[in-house]
C-alpha cells in the first residue's frame, strides 16, 4: 500500500488516487505537422524505467487535483511530489 502525500490534502492511501502515467510528455502543438512516426512516438513510446520515474497522479477520491510524483519503481518509495508544469527534481534534491 502506497501512502501518497497529496500536496493539498496530506498523506492518504493509494486507493484514493489514480495514476495517470508518465509525466512531462508534452502534447505536440501542431499535430498536423508530425509524420506518423513522431505521432506514434508521442502516443505510445514510454521510458518505463526500473528505478526513479516521474508520474502524474490525481487525487480522485479527494481534492481531484493533479500533481507529479517522483517514485522508485523497485523500492516503491515515493521520493517527492511536485506541481504539474514544474521541472522534475534532480537526483540529490530529495
Amino acid at each position: 500500500m502506497l501512502l501518497i502525500p497529496c500536496p493539498w490534502c496530506g498523506p492518504r492511501d493509494e486507493t484514493e488516487f489514480t495514476c495517470g502515467g508518465e509525466a512531462h510528455i508534452v502534447t505536440p502543438r501542431a499535430p498536423e505537422d508530425l509524420d506518423d512516426e513522431a505521432w506514434g512516438e508521442f502516443l505510445y513510446l514510454r521510458t518505463n524505467p526500473k528505478g526513479r520515474c516521474a508520474e502524474r497522479w490525481v487525487h480522485t477520491h479527494g481534492c481531484r487535483r493533479w500533481f507529479n510524483v517522483l517514485r522508485d519503481t523497485v523500492t516503491e518509495r515515493i521520493l517527492t511530489v511536485y506541481e504539474v508544469g514544474a521541472r522534475p527534481p534532480q537526483a540529490g534534491d530529495d
Binding site: 500500500m1 502506497l2 492511501d13 493509494e14 486507493t15 489514480t18 495514476c19 518505463n48 526500473k50 520515474c53 508520474e55 519503481t73 523497485v74 523500492t75 516503491e76
Partner: peptide, 13 residues
C-alpha cells in the same frame, strides 16, 4: 496493479 512497478510484490488493495 494500477501503476508501474518492478517490485514483484504488488499492492494490498
Amino acid at each position: 496493479d494500477g501503476y508501474k512497478s518492478y517490485s514483484q510484490r504488488g499492492s494490498f488493495p
